[in-house]
Simulated assay, not measured.
Amino acid sequence: MVRSDARLTTMGAYGRILAGRQPRPIGVRTPVVRAREPLRGTVADPTGRFDRRAFWPLPHETVDVPGDRFTVLEEHSETTVTAVREWIDAARPVRGIRAAQGLHKVHREEERMSVQVVVVTGAASGIGRATAELFADRGARVVAVDVAREGLEKLSAIHGVVPLVGDVSTEETNTAMVDLAVREFGRLDAVVLNAGISGAGPLESPGAIDRFDRILAVNVRGTALGIRASLPALRAAGGGSIVATSSVSGLGGDPVTWAYNAAKAAVINLVRGAAIDYAVENIRVNAIAPGGTATAMTAGVLSHPTLGPAVTGRIPQRRWADPREQAEVIWFLTSPAASYVTGVTIPVDGGLSANNGILLPPAFPGDAPR
């Protein structure tokens, strides 16, 4: 039997929100049309984008429930019951209840993005700095994390940015950055795990393995610790987004870059595994794989008289990225526009990874033959 009630009361109508896994009542403000019998079931949102904080956990409480896509699935039958068929536009929040986001209009999601709370690691320079600045420019609240105190001091002058000096390879720093976001801004919506280092040199060189250990500690352990530390806060917020910075060097090999290749490849598979584990909780985990980007880390290559042009010549767009271009893709991955994107690594490389390397991409008209 399918009920057509526009509204349900919480009295006797208990359910379980899929992502929350905790018993919570279902209902709307009075006056209500009571169900003919107590209803037990599961509130399911096919979009996976609802905010479970829209439901108040106390019995006999009445709350506002968006209709369009919410259904109640009875636990003891196959019947799908439409719990609410319309959004009650005139309703007001009850005792701080937040309206479920993402179920009515896209512009409501965009409004939420303007005040989202994000942690960015490796924020003192390069892609991390560009990301922190972009989010702050768009009204977000940012916890900026780095070992470089001077770079963070410059960032802290930006409204909405709170700095934290720390080493992401330690559990203490990862715990502290999440705690700081929740303490300062009340919640956590997204985490950008961007901190990374390169180096190591030839595999047979003295100290190469020690340097390799440090690269793994920052690039891989730091990413794993960041995911682990952020999960409780993202879960409490009803879900969220984690974006890690890998590299095109994680998609293939480079000369004398074995340690960095290994570390960035590990990040890609770490992202895949975590995405599978936490998708059911509306926590998305993705990565970007930047190609040549003009940062302090790559300045030596870019300015080299022969190596710089050689690398640039292999990029189909024939230029290096600006860090802001990488930040824009990170922004997309944390946004509602990417609500069904998880477990992927997006190359942001001007077409570099599209070429198998046998032939160079076409030159600009008028360039000297290669």
Rank of each mutant, 00 (worst) to 15 (best):
R141T: 09
G343E: 01
G366F: 14
R49V: 13
N355A: 13
I315W: 03
Y260T: 02
E86N: 03
V256S: 11
P369A: 14
A148T: 08
Q317D: 12
I97R: 12
T79M: 13
R183C: 07
P290F: 04
G226Y: 00
G357N: 11
A287P: 04
R272I: 13
T71P: 07
A224W: 14
D189A: 06
V84I: 09
A124G: 08
T245M: 08
I242F: 04
E133H: 05
A299W: 05
A368Y: 12
G196S: 09
W331V: 11
E153I: 09
P23N: 06
T82E: 11
T80H: 14
E204T: 13
K264S: 04
V348R: 00
E281G: 07
L359Q: 13
G300T: 08
V182F: 13
T121Y: 00
R36G: 15
R272E: 09
A200D: 06
E171N: 10
P25S: 03
P25K: 00
I276Y: 10
G343L: 10
W331D: 06
G207T: 08
N174K: 14
D68S: 13
R49N: 09
F332M: 02
S241R: 01
A130G: 05
N355H: 07
I17F: 08
N356S: 15
P232W: 09
D64A: 12
I127K: 00
T245R: 04
V341N: 05
V311Q: 08
V28W: 02
V301Y: 09
W258I: 12
G196Y: 04
N219H: 10
G128Q: 02
T82C: 04
D277T: 11
G48I: 10
